[in-house]
Simulated scan of single mutants.
Amino acid sequence: MTAATGSTLEIDRLNKRYGDIVALNNMTFDVRAGELFGFVGSNGAGKTTTMRIAMGVLATDSGEVRWQGKPVDFDTRRSIGYMPSERGLYPKMKVLEQLVYLGELRGMPASAAKKAANEWTERLGLEGRRKDEVQKLSLGNQQRVQLAAALVHDPEVLILDEPFSGLDPMAVDVMSSVLREKAAAGAPVIFSSHQLELVERFCDRVGIIRAGEMVACGTVDELRGEANLRIQVDAPAARPGWSDAVPGARVVEHNGSVYVLELDTGADDQQLLAAAMATGPVHEFSPHRPALTELFRNVVSQEVAQ
């Protein structure tokens, strides 16, 4: 199967409670055809719960998961490739044998499943491990087998929970290349990760969740646009406190002669420039583009402050 053009995976107002604990609170977002969507949040924020509900592993208290405009059911889930964060493989089963079996469970003829399993083990650098038991593989190679298991049936959608965990840099490159290819073929691809530099590097959009709620969603540039303006200033002669007289400006980073200041809405960057120049030479005065790690940290710090 191949992904249909215009197909969207919709997560619509999911709610999940465990007694007094709110795991998900109106969790809502979508993943579009051909899109790589990064799903990030602190441990316990609700990422895995959302993915498990999408796959039918958990039941939602309310809300709905839709694919191509229709509620996801058992048959629909056969066309989804799922990679859980925990090991979901049979440890004593051999790699190729296991992938063929999983392909058959997804409705593939044995010959097609074997062909696909051979192709994916070769692509993922596992051709020499086909006859090995999974439990005898390194953690990184087990992760590659997990990805092959999610891909063997040519899914229309990919849902991956921490797929880069435990991978070396070369394996990360292989994994990234595979996910890009699936997205380029039209599949919506959603994955969670704590490796925010990877998310920033190749995701089309990012969703940041906090305490079971989606609190920010968009491209990294859009998320930057929602943050207060930051200015990087390199002023070798400046002394601590040089910017105190500028209303709405505060130093958030300081390393040697380089300062990063955050300006509240309405604060005057020209007044800040004048204050910097009053200290002596200014080698740099430019907008500071926060990395996704910094944006994420700001969201988490808001949670702590509440």
Rank of each mutant, 00 (worst) to 15 (best):
S138L: 13
K47S: 05
S176H: 11
P287E: 11
G125R: 10
D264I: 13
L89Q: 08
V206D: 10
E200L: 09
D269Y: 08
S165H: 02
G186S: 11
G207Y: 05
G280Y: 09
V189N: 02
L179P: 00
E162M: 09
V31D: 03
F39I: 12
K70F: 00
P169R: 01
A211H: 10
A245L: 07
G225Y: 06
T76D: 04
K47E: 03
G63D: 01
S7C: 05
A305C: 06
A184C: 03
E119R: 11
M55H: 05
G207K: 02
T219D: 06
A150H: 03
T76N: 03
N118K: 09
P109T: 15
C217Y: 15
E200Y: 14
D168P: 10
M51E: 00
V206W: 10
D161L: 08
F191H: 03
A112L: 14
G125A: 14
N118I: 06
P163I: 15
E156C: 01
L102F: 12
E253K: 15
I190H: 02
Y90G: 02
V304E: 04
R32E: 10
R289S: 13
V282R: 12
G241L: 11
R180D: 07
G38N: 07
A171K: 05
G38T: 11
S243F: 01
G248C: 06
T60P: 07
V251H: 05
V189G: 00
G212E: 06
E133I: 06
V22A: 13
M51A: 04
M170T: 07
D161W: 12
D234L: 15
P91K: 02
Y90L: 06
E127C: 00
S165Y: 01
A33N: 12
G6S: 03
D168C: 10
E284Y: 11
S165A: 08
A150N: 04
V95H: 07
V260A: 10
K136H: 13
H194F: 04
Y18E: 05
Q195A: 14
